[in-house]
Computed example of a mutant assay.
Amino acid sequence: MYKTIVIGGGQAGLAAGYYLKKYGLSFLILEVGPEPVGSWLHYYDSLKLFSSAKYSSLPGFPFPGGSNRYPSRDEVISYLREYASKYNMPVKTNTRVEKVEKFNGRFQVTTTSGEILEAESVISATGSFHRPYLPDIPGLAEFRGEVIHSSVYRNTMPYQGQRVIVVGSGNSAVQIGVELSEVSTTTLAVRTQVKLLPQVKLGRDLHFWLIATGLDKFPFPLFGRPVPEPTTVIDSAGFKQLLESGKPNQRPMFTSLYEEGVVWGMGKKRTLMQSFLLLGFGLIYLSYRN
């Protein structure tokens, strides 16, 4: 019997563990992966935080290195490993939770191995990486290429010299699209033009201004109305200049797919023979290659 079971051993789960340990509560962190670093091992190679090291620390342990730099994926992985070790977090790795049920005021957490753990409370810190969104696009069933989710994207190597379409106007789509445009002819297919927000304003990181103005704790939603998910892209690598120069270029979202490619507005088809279609909001479509 634990006071709390935390499901997920990434940054949210470890931060929860810090406070559970601080207040002397018995707890256990269950992590599906081989070590307590969440999904960071699976992110693409070039990923960098769009918050500086100063604003990316977990409680009790500052992110190492200069406070104004933007840590890489590998640095985050090393930091999470060190954090779990520093605080001797009770993490049970390679453990997937199958279900959580409540009986007589207590929770029973059942793992896929059949183990049953009991706790007075449960914290879900699983994130969304392992449940990617797969949109239903007209013509998808007829498309004869391979469909790959963007979560499997690692680097530009498989796409060199290809024709690439990235769908989406958020941070991931723009970051991946800009990177791919260095080695391929790349287009961003968007519903609305990419909206950019400078990462540094008047010599200060964006997160400084959010904290200084209190917007980071602004009482959303307002008047009972839900707040739409933000789609503004943090300009962390000169995206404005690159997009203006057409690397990648932007086009309105295509209307559908067909056997060999995409259909733009007015029924104009684009064959993707020997090329790639990468959906930045969730999917990568790989079509025919020699």
Rank of each mutant, 00 (worst) to 15 (best):
A119K: 07
M157F: 10
S67Y: 13
P36V: 01
P34C: 08
K195P: 00
V109Y: 01
E260N: 15
S85L: 14
S128T: 10
E120K: 04
I123R: 06
R163D: 14
S72A: 14
G10C: 07
P252I: 01
G214S: 06
P36G: 03
E259N: 09
N88T: 05
T186G: 02
L25Q: 14
T185R: 14
L140F: 06
V122P: 00
E146L: 11
S275W: 04
S85M: 15
V97E: 03
S85F: 09
L49Q: 08
S46K: 12
P219A: 12
E244I: 07
G145D: 00
G60I: 02
S287M: 05
L222W: 09
F218A: 11
T185W: 10
K247N: 06
V37S: 06
V6H: 00
L222H: 06
P62A: 10
R144W: 03
K247W: 05
N94M: 15
F239D: 00
S78G: 11
I7M: 11
S85A: 15
I77T: 03
T4A: 15
G139E: 02
L41N: 09
E35N: 11
V227D: 14
V227H: 15
P219V: 06
T185V: 11
F107G: 01
T111A: 02
I116E: 14
S236L: 07
T187V: 13
S151F: 13
F276L: 11
P64M: 10
P219G: 08
V194K: 03
Y43I: 12
S26Y: 11
D216N: 15
Q108E: 12
S172H: 03
Y133H: 12
K92V: 07
I123V: 15
L49R: 09
T186L: 07
P138K: 10
W264G: 01
G17Y: 05
L286V: 09
L196W: 08
D136I: 08
M1S: 02
P221G: 04
Q274K: 06
T187W: 09
E229K: 03
F218P: 02
F223K: 06
G13H: 00
Q160F: 12
A16G: 09
L257G: 01
F27M: 13
T186E: 06
A141S: 13
N68V: 01
V32I: 13
V262F: 08
D216H: 14
Q274T: 01
R163Q: 14
S128Q: 11
P90S: 06
Q193N: 12
E118K: 09
P228W: 07
K92T: 14
P132Q: 02
N68P: 01
S26Q: 12
S57I: 01
N94F: 09
T156F: 10
L188Y: 01
Y70G: 02
S51Q: 05
Y55N: 07
D136R: 11
L80C: 07
D136S: 10
P34E: 13
N68E: 12
T111L: 02
F50T: 00
T232F: 12
G60W: 05
W264K: 05
D74W: 07
L49K: 10
V37M: 10
P230K: 15
S39N: 12
E142I: 02
S52V: 08
T112D: 13
I165N: 07
P228S: 04
W264H: 03
R163H: 11
R225T: 11
Y19N: 12
W264S: 01
S245E: 12
L20Q: 02
Y258V: 05
Y44M: 09
Y55D: 10
Y19K: 13
V263L: 15
L222C: 11
R251L: 12
R225A: 13
